[in-house]
Design a protein around this nucleic acid. Structure first.
Length: 187
DNA sequence: CAATAGATCATCT
DNA sequence: GATGATCTATTGC
């Protein structure tokens, strides 16, 4: 059973932290979330939604529990989950997964990968490994084909740091990751 | 191992 | 016409 929409209808920071350990599934492909970043609606200049409501950011202002996918640097898709109640902006960037199921197919999608660690240890890598594209923009995470399932909660320490790869609002501690997990990006 | 350059395009001004 | 919430190969130590 996918995680219910009520899970996402909370503050973006809580959703980002609590997503650690949950499982992202796309058909036979699945991975455990080990690293996330929160992008807030207000007072966060790094968030795409900071620019206001546009065609690209419209889903971020919509109901929670949907996918926000965007193209990064013209090459990579990045996967986010929309949080906060309907009408309020906020989303969580999925930065890294621990591959669980369908490793064979992931290796086929990522020919350069040598080890399992190379498959999903970055926001652009995991979308390529899972086959997530711009077509998943707005997809309902409670229904599929892209879903999020509860994982084994607890049993790990949560680390907090500043976010990676941004210039504005760079000092905010909005990156969450599972401590000592080797699939976290930029180890 | 660290630093750097190049690829490449949807979106917004 | 400018701008990236990135990845990879390559260079140089």
């Amino acid at each position: 059973m996918p995680i219910p929409r009520s899970f996402y209808k909370r503050s973006t920071v809580l959703v980002a932290r609590d997503l650690l350990g949950a499982v992202v599934r796309h058909g036979p492909l699945a991975g455990r979330i080990v690293e996330t970043e929160a992008y807030l609606g207000e007072a966060d200049e790094a968030a795409h939604s900071f620019a206001g409501l546009t065609r690209r950011t419209r889903v971020i202002f919509g109901p929670p529990g949907h996918a926000y996918v965007y193209l990064s640097y013209g090459l990579h898709c990045c996967l986010n989950f929309v949080a906060e109640p309907d009408g309020r902006p906020g989303c969580v960037l999925i930065r890294a997964l621990e591959p669980l199921e369908g490793l064979d197919q992931m290796f086929l999608r990522r020919p350069r990968a040598r080890k399992p660690r190379d498959l999903c240890s970055g926001p652009g890598k995991l979308t390529q490994a899972l086959g997530v594209t711009l077509e998943h923009y707005g997809a309902d995470l409670t229904r599929g084909p892209l879903t999020v399932e509860p994982g084994e909660s607890g049993g790990f320490d949560i680390g907090v740091s500043t976010r990676i790869g941004i210039t504005r609002s760079a000092e905010l501690p909005l990156r969450f990751f599972i401590r000592d997990n080797e699939h976290v990006s930029r180890r």
